[in-house]
Nucleic acid binder design. Structure first.
Lengths: 189, 189
DNA sequence: ACACTTGTGTCCAATTCTTAGACACTTTAG
DNA sequence: CTAAAGTGTCTAAGAATTGGACACAAGTGT
C-alpha cells in the first residue's frame, strides 16, 4: 500500500481534497499545497516520492506557463522526483512541452481515480529504478558503436576510451540482453 | 542546410507532397511512403536521420493505434533514429503515450512549416549527442548516490561496484559540471 | 596498378583501477 | 547505552587500461 509520500499542488481546495481522498488509500502520506510558492522548501523537507502539480495558477492565466515554470524549477532542483502534471485545458502542445521538460506524466481533468493512482505509481517505480554501472556502460557502448556503424576506432574516440578497451568490452559482452533495444542497423531484408 | 535524410510516412499523398516541399529546402533528402508496411526495410536501406510518421492509417481507424504500433515497431528496431509523430486528431493521452513510447516529438495537423523543420532538426540534434563514458558514469554515480542520501555503501552495492571504488570515483570528480542537473537534495532554506 | 590512408585483430609491458579484507572511529537505531 | 551500520584509510593481489607496435585488409586518389 503505502508507496511513499505524495505532494499535491493545486490552487483549488476542492480538488485538493478530492485528490487527497483518492490517493490516501494507496499512498502513505498525501501533502497538499494551494500554491507552488513554498513547493521547494516543502519538497526539501518532506522528500516526496512524487509530485502532482496543477498547471494553472493565478486565476485567468491558463496558458499553463505557471505550471511549466514550476515544473522546470522543481525538476531542476530535484531531478529524481517524478512530477506528474495536471491540467483542465487539454492542450497537446502543452503536454508535449511538459514531458520534454522533464514531467513524468500528464493527466487531464477530470481525472480517473484509478488512472491517477496508476500513473503516480508508475512514475515512482520508474524513478526508483537503479541500473548497475556495468549495464549502463555496455548499453551506451553498444549504442555509440552502432551509431558509428561499427567503426570501433571512432566509437572508442567518442567514448573517450582506448580502442583496445572498447574492443575488450565488446568481446566481453557479445550480447548482454539489452534493456529495451533490439538493434543491429543493417540486418533485415 | 542538408541535415540528413528524412523519411515521411503518411497515407495522404497530398500531405506527403506538401511536407516534401517544405522539408526539401532544409534537409538533404526527403523520402516518402504512403504506408508503413515497408518502413522497416526502407529505413534499413536508407538509414534516415529522422522519421516523420503519421498516426492514422487504414481509413476510419483514427484512434492512433496504427501509428502507435508502427512507432513501437520502428523504435524497437532502430532506437537511435528519432521518430516524430503527426496527427490530425489532437489527443493529449495519445501524445503522452507516444512520447512515453519513444517518440521524439509530436506535432498536430495542420502544422507550421517552420515549426516542423525546427522539431525535426532538434530531434536529429538530440539523437546525435554522444556522451563520453566517463561523464555518463559520473552522472549516474552522482544520481544513485543522492538517491541513497549519500550512503556510499548502499550506493556502491546498487551500482555493482565496491565501496572503495565508489569512494575513489567520488573523490576523483568532486564536482564535474553535471549535464542538466542541479542536485543536492537537502541544501535550500 | 601503385602508393596512401584508415581501420582491424592481436600482442606486450607499464601503469592504473578494482577488489576483498582489515582496522579504528563516528553515526544511527533500538 | 549497546549494537549495528557506515566511514575513512591502508595493503596486497588481481584485473583492466593504456600507448605502442606489427601484419594485414579495404578504400582512396592518381
Amino acid at each position: 500500500m503505502k508507496h511513499g509520500t505524495i505532494l499535491v499542488i493545486d490552487d483549488n481546495a476542492a480538488i485538493l481534497t478530492a485528490v487527497k481522498i483518492c490517493l490516501s488509500s494507496t499512498f502513505g502520506k498525501v501533502l497538499t499545497l494551494t500554491s507552488p510558492d513554498k513547493a521547494l522548501v516543502t519538497i526539501a523537507q518532506e522528500n516526496p516520492a512524487a509530485i502532482l502539480l496543477d498547471m494553472n495558477f493565478s486565476l485567468g492565466v491558463n496558458s499553463g506557463q505557471e505550471g511549466m515554470m514550476w515544473l522546470s524549477a522543481i525538476h531542476r532542483k530535484f531531478p529524481d522526483i517524478p512530477i506528474v502534471l495536471m491540467t483542465a485545458y487539454a492542450d497537446v502542445k502543452l503536454a508535449v512541452r511538459a514531458l520534454k521538460n522533464g514531467a513524468a506524466d500528464f493527466v487531464t481533468k477530470p481525472w480517473d481515480n484509478d488512472e491517477l493512482i496508476r500513473v503516480l505509481k508508475d512514475a515512482i517505480d520508474k524513478a526508483g529504478e537503479i541500473v548497475p554501472l556495468d549495464q549502463l556502460e555496455s548499453e551506451h557502448v553498444r549504442k555509440v558503436l552502432n551509431k558509428c556503424d561499427g567503426n570501433m576506432k571512432r566509437a572508442a574516440d567518442l567514448l573517450g576510451i582506448s580502442r583496445q578497451t572498447l574492443y575488450n568490452k565488446v568481446k566481453a559482452s557479445p550480447l548482454p540482453p539489452l534493456r529495451g533495444e533490439g538493434k543491429l542497423r543493417g540486418e533485415e531484408e
